[in-house]
Design a binder for these strands. Structure first.
Length: 135
DNA sequence: GCCAACGTTGGC
DNA sequence: GCCAACGTTGGC
């Protein structure tokens, strides 16, 4: 079991839409490293949903509900997706600025490679971010 | 197979 | 709106 952070542009597909849809295939990932992470996912993995653009904050949690599979809407079998379902909206969003200001999150892959859309999250980082959302 | 040029992403 | 970082493409 692992934890991940999934980036999305709220103008394209926001967490609220996932809540509304109940589940979705997390598609649109083309970056190779991000695809490697996707292929490493197993059902039950947890994910933080993070909004880019103006929000720049983790907004909710989700769960991986399927194994990785080839994106049925893409011709390329290398492009994989997983199904995710919403778990809950965070009590309050945790902004990128807050995360960066927390010395315990130093070295977070999200900062190291800001352009990666699927980012691994350690248990410690997960717990910290969830705790930060409650304060 | 290398690398310069170019495009895209995301943070500021 | 700008720019840094990174990935991809295409010519050689």
């Amino acid at each position: 079991m692992a934890n991940w952070l999934l980036k999305t542009e709220p103008s394209v597909y926001a967490f609220e839409e996932l809540v509304r849809d109940k589940k979705t295939a997390w598609d649109g990932v083309a970056n190779n490293l991000a695809l490697i992470h996707l292929r490493a996912m197993v059902p039950g993995d947890r994910a933080l949903v993070y909004h880019t653009d103006d929000e720049r904050a983790a907004i909710g949690t989700a769960q991986v509900t399927s194994k990785p599979y080839a994106d049925p809407n893409a011709g390329d079998p290398k492009l994989v997706v997983v199904d995710v379902k919403p778990v809950k909206k965070l009590p309050r969003p945790v902004t990128l600025a807050q995360m960066k200001a927390n010395p315990k999150l130093e070295g977070f892959e999200l900062f190291r490679n800001s352009r990666l859309s699927v980012v691994p999250v350690t248990d410690t980082q997960w717990d910290l971010i969830v705790a930060m959302s409650q304060t």
